[in-house]
Each structure stands twice: as C-alpha cells, then as structure tokens.
Amino acid sequence: MCFMCFLLPIHLFGKGEVYEVVQGTIRFHSDAPQELIRASSDKLIGVLDVVNRTFLFKIDVASFVGFNSPLQKEHFNENYMESDLFPVAVYSGKIIEDMDLSKDGDFNIRTKGKLTIHGIDHQCIIRCHVICKKGVVTVQSDFIVLLADYNIKIPRIVYDKLSPQINVSVNAVLSVKSPS
C-alpha cells in the first residue's frame, strides 16, 4: 500500500504535456423579459495537461466589459459578483473521456470539475467541443450558470431585468506551453 503511494503521484510536467491558453474569451448574457444584458472578457487564462487530462481555467471578474451602461458594469462588480472580495472565477477538473489530445482530431467531451464563482464552489459537468490540430487545441463550450447556486441574489426591483440563469460561452485557443 505504502509503496503504491510513492509510485503513483509526483511526476513533473514533461515537454509537450502542458498546453496554455493563448487566446481566450468568455461571453455571457442574461435574457430577462425587460432587459438583455451582454458582457465579455478576453482575459481568460488557463492550462491543460494532456497526459493527465486535467485543466484549470481562470478569469478576472473585473475584466468583463460590454453591459448596457458603465453603471451596470459597476453594479455587476459591486453588488452581484463582489469582485473586490472574489476577484477571480475558476474552473478546474478533469476530462472524463479517456482520449489523447496530443493527436489531431475533433472531439465532443465532458469535463468534470469545480466551478468557483462569487467565492462558492460547485461541482459540475460541462460539455466541450475540442478540435486538436497540429499542436493547437481549440475549445468551445456553452453552459448555463444558475445565480442561485452561487449565492447571487436578484433584488425585487430588478426581477424583470436580470435572468436567474446566465448563458455562458467560452472560446479558447491553447498551444504547447513554451518553457519559461
């Protein structure tokens, strides 16, 4: 038992195992009866270990732009996401399907992991469409985030203006991490 513990973990990343986000965008929209709110950020960062099939993606909440007014952006950061207290949103986990991302191909995969928004962790499974081509991995994913899961309350006064479910869309291009 003990010697197995020594055998399994601890191996440092070798060359070509870790991919890094070179260009990543997250968009979201809230489609409420009275108002459509859209915002986006191209500040997505992240790494993907193709051998262990684990990944971690991260974004600065304050980096989202768009919205319908600067005041709305301020309210997003101040009243809903509380970006001073919880500056980042993170998704980390593992790809469920046993597959080799270092080979070229077009895959529909499921990822299982922990999504942290507004300081609250939530286990979830997110489907992704992945295209691997010549060492470049393109990831596309659409999913829904329920505000109630992350303890983000909608005040009565904006009930018709903010949807309880937010549609999120992620686009990322990853390539082999250059040694630093």
Partner: peptide, 22 residues
C-alpha cells in the same frame, strides 16, 4: 483514492504553473 489525489495534486500543480506565468 490515489487517482483522486493525483488529479487534485495535478490541478494544484497547474494552478502554481498558471500563477507563475500569468
């Protein structure tokens, strides 16, 4: 148990990697 731990270790390792290069 160890595969779970390995995944967790791996993600921690990735987090460190990301912090050092972002």
């Amino acid at each position: 148990q160890n595969t779970e731990d390995t995944t967790k270790d791996n993600i921690d390792e990735l987090a460190k990697l990301l912090d050092s290069t972002s």
